[in-house]
């Protein structure tokens, strides 16, 4: 997809090794925009793996993206558990009413077989198809919801926090079910051709739980789960703060972290240096309001602060760019990276 001598895969691997590649790698986490490319509704687009394959290839080509994302939508895993998905014309499908209505249901919760689950087959087929097309040239990023964060959609945030703090028996049981499911889903995506897995774990951020709770819960679960995923992982906190737990995250075995626009990217880079590659941190929600000048300014500023020394991938802060973000803005981000993202970085303050 990139015509330069170095492939996206080589670029990303070098930066993950905390070295400077030819230029800053860029992960535009575009999922729904594939529907625009194909002239389909979002629902129609995600109904067939062939659409996602075609959509991802076109988006990759158009924006010179350094990754391919065969991710469908967050509540897909909830669908696998038998839960409801609500479609929208202008955004990602949302999970419906939680299927765990009473916390005691957790005792009888059955784990779907991630390998044979009908709804997950389209992810595997899309991944296989994309792998056939791009081979080892572009990283294919599979996505899983962490066992620790999935319960927000399974039972609702309020009930989940109550079992996390007051019902350790049910919390433990739910984690056992989710962990097995997550490991199977991740490993099946790797078998299908994903290069790495993005472990989505927003509940572990200090925006949601204090560090002392994280160390007793999300941290241990991430350590156990990531050690069983047979490939590299990046952990994403979907805009949540992580500065206070950077050293802990590094001990979970993950290679990179998705960072929030609420935290200073320069300070984050210093905190992660040599331990974790920093991914981020353009404000995805605000991005739909950016004009060309603002886009160039923001991208240059992030590159200046975070790119020197490698160990950095430019991306949005949430892990999925909203459908409302225009093609012009995405193109400007890409062009700015091509223009100002070459190493050694030569951007000065202001």
């Amino acid at each position: 997809m990139n015509t330069m001598a170095i492939t996206s895969m080589e670029r990303v691997l070098k930066t993950l090794g905390h070295q400077e590649p030819d230029r800053v790698p860029m992960f535009l986490m575009l999922t729904m925009h594939g529907a625009k490319e194909l002239g389909l509704s979002i629902r129609e687009y995600f109904s067939k793996p062939e659409h996602v394959i075609e959509g991802q290839l076109r988006l990759g080509q158009k924006y010179q993206n350094d990754c391919i994302v065969p991710f469908f939508y967050g509540p897909l895993e909830i669908e696998a558990f038998g839960g409801e998905v609500i479609w929208a014309d202008d955004g990602p499908p949302n999970s419906g009413e939680p299927f765990i209505r009473s916390i005691e249901q957790i005792n009888h919760l059955k784990m779907p077989d991630a390998r044979s689950s009908k709804v997950l087959q389209k992810v595997y087929k899309a991944t296989e198809g994309l792998n056939k097309e791009v081979g080892n040239k572009i990283p294919i990023i599979g996505v899983v919801m962490s066992p620790f964060s999935l319960p927000v959609m399974q039972m609702g945030f309020d009930k989940y926090l109550e079992i996390m703090f007051f019902r350790p028996d049910l919390f433990k049981r739910l984690m056992e079910v989710n962990q097995e499911f997550c490991v199977n889903f991740a490993n099946r995506q790797l078998e299908a051709g994903a290069t790495a897995i993005c472990y989505f774990d927003p509940v572990s951020s200090t925006t949601i739980i204090p560090r002392e709770t994280y160390l007793k819960t999300g941290f241990l679960i991430a350590q156990q789960t990531i050690s069983r995923i047979k490939g590299p992982t990046a952990t994403h906190f979907a805009s949540g703060r992580i500065m206070d737990i950077v050293d802990d995250i590094a001990k979970t075995g993950t290679a990179a972290v998705g960072t929030s626009t609420s935290e200073d990217i320069g300070m984050m880079k210093v905190a992660c240096k040599g331990k974790l590659t920093v991914i981020g941190n353009m404000n995805g929600i605000d991005m739909r309001n950016w004009d060309r000048t603002k886009t160039v300014h923001i991208v240059k500023d992030i590159i200046r602060k975070a790119a020197p020394g490698g160990g950095f991938i430019l991306s949005d802060n949430h892990g999925e760019i909203p459908f409302q973000v225009s093609e012009e803005t995405l193109m400007t981000i890409s062009e700015t990276v091509q223009t100002y993202g070459h190493y050694p970085i030569q951007l000065s303050d202001g």
Binding site: L161, M164, T206, T207, P210, T213, M243
Partner: peptide, 9 residues
Amino acid sequence: GRYSLSQVY
């Protein structure tokens, strides 16, 4: 950023 949402809740 000193406290978490779970504590607020």
